[in-house]
Design a protein around this nucleic acid. Structure first.
Length: 294
DNA sequence: CCTTAATCCTGGAAGC
DNA sequence: TGCTTCCAGGATTAAG
């Protein structure tokens, strides 16, 4: 489940080793992992000199000096790894694409669940026209006015709106739950009911949350590791994600869990009070009774 | 147009 | 011990 901090960690790690390297040979073991564009070795950057790595939301792009672009989305279990020349470790299964570089090292895209994928484009403009134009502003640079305008347009639950990559790009299930807890906002708050001062607070907290997570190398729940195989350490600072039934770090109340926007959502009933009345109040799974006082 | 649900996929955990 | 069942979820597509 790489989200913005995990993808940015991968980007930074690859940016220290890839620029300047030449791609000698590309082997495509599972062609279906290339979702759009050409699947030829040339399209996959064979012969190219690598220049730069860019990120928008959870998506990554590897730019060659001649303009060719390789675009990667890690999905849920995807990994983009760099194996040094002296690393003789056997490649793990589900390694779909391998780039053999001029210094003997290898770049590997692997993804057991194949929710991720690879796209090829002749240039950056083609990538932006095909994919990045559909994304909202990156979560690290979106302004309160932009986010507020996006939330105003929808009556969905706030959590569902924050997961919508066309509204703001980069948040996934982990960081939306953590952000909502940090802002003391209920996941079912109608998105359009959040006023601008609250959105300003959200943006401030969101930037701080994501930057702290990046500083810790992201969150390693299940199997995420960065391109060097290193685990992140931000998961030990999670307050709600994966902690259903455990005591709230702030008030000690048992954390609640239910489905919001089709995703498992964890929050504190006491700290994250639903402030706007809805026509039909859904009872949380298990018949948890509503909070009497705050 | 807007929102929700189904779908993809496999490893790991839980249950019997 | 070994089998079956369920669950995790990002993004796309289909349905309501």
């Amino acid at each position: 489940m790489p989200e913005l901090p995990e993808v940015e960690t991968v980007r930074r790690a690859l940016a220290t080793v890839l620029p300047g390297r030449q791609v000698r040979r590309v082997s495509l073991r599972f062609p279906d992992i290339v979702h759009a564009g050409l699947r030829s070795p040339r399209a996959l950057l064979q012969g190219a000199q690598l220049a730069e790595l860019r990120r928008h939301g959870k998506q990554l792009a590897l730019l060659a000096t001649d303009g060719r672009v390789l675009h990667v989305h890690l999905g849920m279990t995807g990994a983009w790894s760099h194996l040094p020349a002296d690393d003789n470790e056997k490649l793990w299964p589900h390694s779909h694409v391998l780039w053999h570089l001029d210094d003997g090292s290898r770049l590997v895209f692997s993804d057991p669940r194949r929710f991720g994928g690879v796209w090829t484009f002749p240039d950056l403009a083609a990538l932006e026209a095909a994919r990045w134009c559909k994304l909202g502003p990156d979560a690290l640079v979106i302004t309160p006015v932009q986010l507020h305008a996006g939330l105003q347009r929808t009556q969905r639950d706030l959590k569902a709106a924050l997961l919508d990559q066309t509204l703001v790009a980069g948040l996934g299930n982990i960081y939306t739950d953590e952000l909502l807890f940090g802002c003391r906002l209920h996941p079912r708050t109608p998105a359009c009911s959040v006023d601008l001062p609250t959105v300003r607070l959200m943006v401030t907290r969101m930037r701080r949350l994501l930057k702290r997570a990046i500083a810790k190398g992201g969150s390693s729940v299940r199997d995420y590791v960065d391109s060097m195989g290193r685990e992140g350490w931000f998961q030990i600072e999670h307050h709600v994600y994966g902690r259903a039934g455990q005591p709230c770090s702030s008030c000690g109340n048992s954390l609640s869990s239910t489905q919001v926007g089709g995703r498992t959502t964890v929050w504190c009933d006491q700290c994250q009070v639903l402030k706007v009345k809805r026509r039909r109040r859904r009872v949380a799974g298990g018949g948890r009774r509503p909070v009497a006082t705050g």
